[in-house]
């Protein structure tokens, strides 16, 4: 394949990566922005979403499209429930102390991982794609499902944007993000907001996983990469800034896709990590974050 088509393929792969990464990272960014909690277990919510999607599509006696659509509803709801429970049982009791919650979510990471290993097993298992559709370009054929993933992720991100900027729930979350104490003096139950935000963040990671799991296989260790890349994206974009997170997800997703195809995935991770180091040195608040 000549350079031009190869670059196009790399860009397409990078776009899919960017779309899924944006969904995962927005969840992480929302949680940090509103709650000031660095959720180290965010990648495990992603893994849990993928594993639950496998269970739903495997055990429900539906055709692939219906089974996958059921997974798209059931997995995020269950992950959101796990996240909300974590908030109430663990984070709230730690009074959302930043250091303590980091340790607690590290513990949660291993608990979820080991639970998945015990129940689901060590194997990587595929989820059948909801539809088979191939776009034939002049130079190569490309999966229509992958393009669907991009469109679906954009739609979900637009919905998140709409919720945050146009609804009462979003207004309450943004007010709580700005000033928790003052929010309470206007009748906002911040405990409920925190539980809802943590659940919402977890659900977004699960949606990303259900979208990607027909392309990648579900595996109990699959949360590592999304967690690392989400942190990279959130730091580059600016902690708590959704706009910054989206821009950084596109940058990192595309560069990861392109560098992975032309060189190696390891080099892509090295460059992304180097970019984080540069941002932390020269613009610690990130591209779109507010100065402390």
């Amino acid at each position: 394949m000549s350079f031009g088509p190869f670059l196009l393929l790399a860009v397409l792969e990078g776009t899919v990566m960017a779309a899924v990464l944006a969904l995962t990272a927005v969840g992480l960014s929302l949680v940090f922005g509103v709650m000031r909690v660095v959720n180290v277990a965010h990648g495990e919510f992603y893994m849990l979403g993928a594993v639950l999607a496998w269970f739903v599509t495997y055990y429900l006696p539906f055709p692939p499209l219906l089974a996958w659509m059921a997974a798209l509803i059931i997995a995020p709801v269950l992950v959101a429930a796990v996240a909300a429970l974590t908030d109430v049982l663990v984070l709230k009791r730690l009074k959302y102390n930043p250091e303590a919650t980091i340790m607690a979510t590290i513990g949660l990471l291993y608990m979820l991982q080991q639970a998945a290993l015990t129940v689901y097993g060590p194997d990587a298992r595929p989820v059948v794609a909801p539809f088979e559709w191939r776009i034939q370009l002049p130079w190569f054929g490309y999966s229509g499902y992958k393009l669907f993933v991009v469109v679906a992720a954009i739609l979900v991100l637009m919905a998140v944007w709409w919720v945050m900027t146009r609804t009462k729930a979003g207004l309450i979350m943004r007010a709580t993000q700005v000033d928790r104490d003052t929010a309470q003096t206007f009748g906002i139950n911040v405990n409920r907001v925190y539980a809802g935000t943590f659940a919402f963040g977890g659900a977004l990671a699960a949606v990303a996983a259900v979208l990607i799991v027909p392309i990648q296989q579900a595996h109990y260790l699959m949360g590592h990469d999304p967690l690392l890349l989400s942190f990279i994206v959130v730091i580059i974009g600016g902690l708590g800034s959704i706009r910054g997170t989206l821009v950084a997800a596109v940058i990192i997703g595309l560069s990861d896709g392109i560098i992975s195809m032309f060189f190696s995935p390891t080099l892509a991770k090295i460059i992304a990590t180097l970019l984080v180091a540069l941002v932390l040195v020269f613009r610690p608040q990130g591209l779109f974050g507010a100065k402390a």
Partner: peptide, 27 residues
Amino acid sequence: VAYVPQGRRLFGPLTVAENIEIGLLAR
């Protein structure tokens, strides 16, 4: 009971309309 804190403590990144909207929520 309404409270106007020292230093105002507005929701700075929110608009005037959104700050007012927050005030209307509790009751």
